[in-house]
Design a protein around this nucleic acid. Structure first.
Lengths: 338, 338
DNA sequence: TTGAAAGCGCTAACAG
DNA sequence: CTGTTAGCGCTTTCAA
């Protein structure tokens, strides 16, 4: 049984006052080096650890960072968040913080969760994911001057109070994917994405468009939008390919869509296309485990680094430094599919 | 800004003492109903919430449950843990607890993490996953009489101090998978698993063997063991199939292995097998997103329920009730692959 | 540079 | 049934 050793025990054995122990630990510069040395030895010897509850009562800091965890969903894209979460757990630990999980059905419920948490465990900061247009969560936190960082840009068009964020440059990813296809000889490259309006989706489409424009190619008629499911991706891919015999490659906004597209690309069905077999290259987005498993070329997000950067910005925010923003470049992982 | 409202504010406005407020909240039966009513109204009105740090100092209870989160790994099987984690976050919330994350490289590091956590955030309980033979973590926690539950059986052969655990009956899963194949007409059904010694792996193999025995079939020569990677699964499947022309189905210990097996099953290669095309049925284990994505029949674990049961056992453990154990039945999700 | 005193918000114990 | 007292372990005054 870890016998509770308090600051008083350390003080008694080191022959100093409780206060000096606290100082030696929290404000080293204010204590004579030899005193500090002796205190630290006793701390080590006794295995003393600060009691965070007690510290929290005095300082109001809990050492906790709250982050929402979502239902698994279709699971394919869920793994992106999971990798981020793991990275964040480690980065947070290095900075002396621990992650506290909560769930919330929607933005309003999440704001209710903020209130719950703030009144109970008092996290020192929040990490928000899946930011979107007019996100009420960021305004709520900003209003209360609570430290937070978002993994994802503020997608609002209106100028807003700035806040720290980290994101991966999605358009650079689809642009790189498209350029890779161009370099491999493809000329007619289509895009499979989501209905416009979502910041992330529009951004990814833009990268593809930019790459085509850079090669002097016309994107007209080469883009389809659908919801993010395998079956939808398959239908849209089939539609694209059968409607345009020159298409030889597909850039997709997600691995889910790409998976659907692959069904079409890998088993050309004479029923929907009469011409001889043509190999369709497919590129996905997120480099999920599925992509790796089935040899799908995909845009990889540096999630561990993103997590580390989030912590970095959070540390700054906790010191009330003006917000920083970081846009990370993704990388293309080339596999058999393209 | 949420203006801190303390128990004193409530007491003052309700016209009672602080203690009565505390009682009304924590020991309702000891307070006159009308007093309690009034107190609760004021609590509501003021938006009062207990300060957990203060409560923790008095009671020693933090309302936190600690759980380790692992690196993503190959990611395919990682999703099992993630679904469990999500379920646990919700079940914990319903019971008034929050999850605290930590990482640890191995068992010893995890025990060090226990000590860290216990000295700092003081979680009320731990949830352990990936239990294995002679798991030092459970002994450590048992020695200190700390409440915990494991998701996974204690796989030790030696009689040990019992502890609460929840697990999914893996052998029932592979047995059901095999029976399904038998019912579909398959007679020669092989098993692709891991080297013996791992409790989980041996258990899954046993279910397959049991089903064959039940049908009066001999499992000899029909089992292969390899590490849990797609490429290894593919090699082993190829070896099995090319070595025995009568094999028509494969039961696998994981979706990773099954994915490898599918490569073989779905694109029969004349080079390694001269006979006419034969369709090989494949069944995986864990029903990961990948399985869903590619139409792989797989054994599904009821992870949300497992999480709920873990919380249930934990609640009991927190009241120092003798440990309970729960073995949950999995279900077979039939898709195209079998 | 070190020490003494006070108090964060809460609840266990006891007194009324 | 309700109120008073005390103190959990820590850090922030302030004084020595």
């Amino acid at each position: 049984m870890a016998d509770k050793v308090t600051i008083a025990d350390v003080a008694r054995i080191a022959g100093v006052s409780r206060q000096t122990v606290s100082n030696a630990l929290n404000s080293p510069e204010v204590v004579r080096p030899e005193t500090r040395q002796r205190v630290l030895e006793v701390v080590e010897e006794l295995g003393y650890r600060v009691n965070l509850a007690a510290r929290q009562m005095r300082t109001g800091r809990s050492g906790l960072i709250a982050i929402r965890i979502d239902p698994a969903g279709d699971g394919i894209n869920g793994s992106v968040f999971d990798r981020f979460l793991h990275g964040l757990t480690e980065s947070a630990a290095e900075a002396g913080y621990r992650l506290l999980l909560y769930t919330a059905g929607d933005d309003d419920k999440e704001i209710a969760a903020f209130e719950d948490l703030l009144g109970a465990h008092e996290p020192d900061a929040f990490v928000l994911t899946s930011t979107h247009h007019k996100d009420p969560r960021t305004s709520w936190l900003l209003d209360r001057k609570l430290p937070f960082v978002t993994f994802g840009r503020p997608w609002s068009e209106l100028p807003e109070v700035p806040h720290p964020w980290v994101d991966v440059d999605g358009s650079a990813g689809t642009e790189a994917a498209t350029e890779h296809l161009l370099a491999t000889g493809h000329r007619r490259i289509a895009f499979l994405g989501w209905p416009s309006g979502s910041g992330v989706g529009d951004d990814r489409r833009e990268g593809w468009r930019r790459a085509l424009a850079g090669a002097g190619l016309d994107p007209t008629g080469l883009s389809r939008a659908t919801s993010d499911a395998i079956a939808d991706g398959e239908a849209a891919a089939r539609d694209l390919i059968s409607g345009d015999p020159d298409i030889t490659a597909l850039v997709c906004a997600s691995d889910s869509l790409a998976l659907g597209a692959l069904q079409v690309a890998r088993s050309p069905n004479p029923a929907w296309h009469a011409e001889a077999y043509r190999r369709i290259a497919v590129v996905g987005f997120d480099d999920t485990p599925v992509a790796k498993a089935i040899g799908l070329t995909s845009v990889h997000q540096p999630l561990t680094e993103a997590a580390a950067r989030c912590m970095q910005l959070l540390s700054r925010a906790l010191e009330r430094t003006p917000p920083g923003t970081i846009l990370l470049p993704p990388s293309l992982v080339v596999r058999q599919s393209a």
